[in-house]
């Protein structure tokens, strides 16, 4: 069985998907902006897995492209690939138009999703695969970072000889991997607007580093909770600078 997948800014799930089964081959569609990061992760994955990996650069959904333009270009870009064989599974990642185009153009007949600790394949192949238990340290190492937890401080350093600290916070109370395969971070309850802003700054920094979908933030503050849910309600309006 082969696994094909489209990687986004959050690599957590596809790393687990690659490690959870002995695939005859893994084909990774990635795009220019994260090409180097993908290659780096694959090189590290090859240290713990024997499977053959192929990384292919495809059209990315960049901010200068509208969805319409991107879809047309992406579909044309796929002309260079032949329709896939029956033993190929496509991991359900990327945007819905990405997936719809891949399925209709390259005829993927089996899709794999992650649900409650398992990878579930449906379509032509029906199968359930137990997830690979990736621990936090492994996850960060695969992306080139080291996680350091010392007393109340949590930091992330670049995993090289210089070890530059790229994130630091003293308001994280717990960090672990969640049941749904995400990094779960518990933040200290803010008691002032200053502390609230500090939490938001930390959250934004982590989103910048790991994307929006890898991490689940828990914080006992209704305003930030609402903001995280992308529902509404900003902070109270402050005096504006024109």
């Amino acid at each position: 069985m082969q696994l094909h997948l489209l990687c986004g800014k959050s690599p957590f799930l596809w790393i687990k998907a690659v490690l959870s089964n002995e695939w005859s081959k893994v084909k990774i569609y990635t795009y220019q902006e994260i090409f180097e990061q993908t290659i780096l992760i694959c090189a590290k994955l090859n240290e713990i897995s024997d499977c053959k990996m192929e990384v292919v650069a495809i059209q990315g959904l960049e901010s200068v492209n509208s969805m319409e333009r991107f879809s047309v270009e992406f579909e044309r870009d796929l002309d260079r690939f032949k329709p896939v064989e029956e033993d190929v599974i496509l991991f359900y990642s990327g945007t819905v138009p990405h997936l719809a185009i891949l399925v209709s153009k390259l005829n993927y007949r089996s899709l794999m999703k992650f649900h409650s600790g398992k990878f579930i394949v449906s379509g032509h192949i029906e199968k359930s695969i137990d997830e690979y238990k990736l621990d936090l340290d492994q996850f960060f190492k695969l992306q080139g970072y080291s996680l350091i937890r010392e007393k109340s401080n949590t930091s992330l350093a670049l995993d090289d000889t210089a070890g530059e600290i790229i994130f630091k916070s003293n308001i994280i109370t717990n960090i672990e991997l969640s049941y749904f395969g995400k990094i779960q971070i518990d933040w200290k309850k803010p008691v002032s607007s200053g502390q609230r802003k500090k939490s938001v700054a930390g959250i934004l920094q982590l989103i910048e580093l790991f994307g929006r979908h890898s991490i689940e933030h828990n914080i006992e503050d209704p305003i930030i909770e609402n903001w995280l849910k992308n529902v509404n309600m900003p902070f109270e309006m402050e005096s504006e600078e024109e």
Partner: peptide, 25 residues
């Protein structure tokens, strides 16, 4: 996921665009 795998000619799969109109795959 199941809609994408539903291979039936009766159904057309579409995606609505932000400024009106839709894509058909």
């Amino acid at each position: 996921i199941d809609v994408l795998l539903h291979d039936d000619n009766r159904w057309k799969q579409t995606y609505t665009l932000d400024n009106g109109g839709f894509l058909e795959f």
